[in-house]
């Protein structure tokens, strides 16, 4: 009442449903947390106040593939010589290391927006900090869900 051994012994293939998460995570390594992200921000900006608003993080609400998660950050700014976005730093609080990417903009960009693709080990928050030409800082945070998937619908 069982299938030939050749078939039934193929145990190595773990339920696909598990694989998305498993692949992204790999062997369980220590991961960063909110404190590690804060520490990174402090390294750059000490205890300077972080304002809210102006920074828009665009990520999929659910990641299709933990190894390739698109991220777009856009900061409200006229992008003139007098008033522009100097830098945007992106962090993830559930990866082995908190840093993801830093963008350095110039007024020549015309628009303070950039897209990259990142690896996310698990469901976690993405934090972006924008530094304006006058030295002021703005931040925002968004969660990305990394799911096992499967189960069609």
């Amino acid at each position: 009442m069982t299938f030939p051994d050749a078939l039934s012994r193929r145990d190595a293939i773990v339920l696909a449903a598990l694989s998305a998460a498993a692949t992204a995570i790999g062997p369980r390594l220590a991961h960063a947390d909110a404190a590690a992200v804060e520490a990174e921000i402090k390294k750059l900006y000490a205890d300077k106040k972080l304002g809210s608003g102006r920074v828009k993080i665009d990520v999929p609400q659910i990641a299709e593939n933990g190894l390739v998660v698109p991220i777009n950050v856009e900061v409200e700014s006229p992008m003139t010589e007098q008033d522009f976005v100097k830098a945007v730093h992106v962090y993830a609080d559930g990866n082995p290391l908190p840093g993801v990417v830093s963008f350095a903009f110039t007024p020549a960009c015309g628009k303070a927006a950039a897209s990259s693709r990142m690896r996310l080990a698990q469901t976690q928050n993405i934090i972006a900090v924008a530094e304006m030409s006058d030295g002021s800082l703005f931040t925002s945070k968004v969660e990305v869900k990394v799911t096992i998937g499967g189960c069609g619908g």
């Binding site: 990866n95 840093g99 950039a114 990142m118």
Partner: peptide, 16 residues
């Protein structure tokens, strides 16, 4: 752009 190890293989970057 300064990329950290969290950036995916075959890295993509767009800007304006």
């Amino acid at each position: 752009a300064t990329w950290h190890p969290a950036i995916s293989a075959n890295p993509y970057q767009s800007f304006f």
